[in-house]
Design a protein around this nucleic acid. Structure first.
Length: 176
DNA sequence: ACGATGATGAAC
DNA sequence: TTCATCATCGTA
């Protein structure tokens, strides 16, 4: 089973999409090769009031993709070295996105973008095969022989600047 | 615990 | 135009 996730999958409340993305596959094609790994960690950045979100201080040239349509990729550069991969969710003009923090054995958002060769060339593109990067439902993941899993809710990483209320919100989801 | 490393955005 | 900061990671 390989079902490509369409933009409408992402056009829902951010927390719902964040949970729904766990267990889905991140798929990358480049020069005829395909790689795909299941998503096991994400963070949600939700709306104008979220002080940890890039969109909190309004639209800028960097974050404008977050204000666009669901299903677009928001890719930005941090710490002079790493690319972060997000997918935009929710309605147009409502800034929200899901940061992909872990896929397969790759723990950490900077490692997975390096492994998948993701950089600014993908920023603003729709997540679809034509872009070379998209998301798929490949069926349930099996853990311990059963087709179930647990979702652990944790604070987001590296957002102390948002202040205690927003830095401690359980907007990071990990597939256990 | 800290340095690498450069874009970003706010202040000047 | 300068400057502090940053949705990180590897090495110590």
């Amino acid at each position: 089973m390989r079902l490509i996730l369409e933009p409408k999958f992402f056009d829902r409340p951010a927390l719902k999409v964040g949970r729904a993305l766990l267990g889905k596959y991140l798929v990358r094609t480049q020069n005829g090769k395909e790689m795909a790994l299941p998503i096991n960690e994400v963070e949600v950045y939700d709306g104008f009031v979220d002080r940890a979100s890039h969109a909190y201080r309004g639209k800028t040239s960097r974050n404008q993709v977050m204000f666009g349509d669901a299903g677009h990729l928001y890719v930005y550069f941090v710490y002079g070295m790493y690319w972060m991969l997000n997918v935009v969710v929710g309605k147009k003009d409502y800034p929200a996105a899901i940061l992909i923090r872990g896929v397969g054995d790759l723990k950490g958002p900077g490692k997975l973008t390096k492994a998948f060769n993701i950089d600014k060339k993908l920023n603003g593109k729709i997540a679809e095969p034509a872009a070379g990067l998209w998301f798929e439902d490949r069926g349930f993941r099996f853990r311990h022989g059963k087709k179930i899993w647990h979702i652990k809710k944790l604070p987001r990483v590296g957002v102390a600047y948002a202040g205690p209320e927003w830095a401690t919100k359980p907007y990071r989801f990990v597939l256990i």
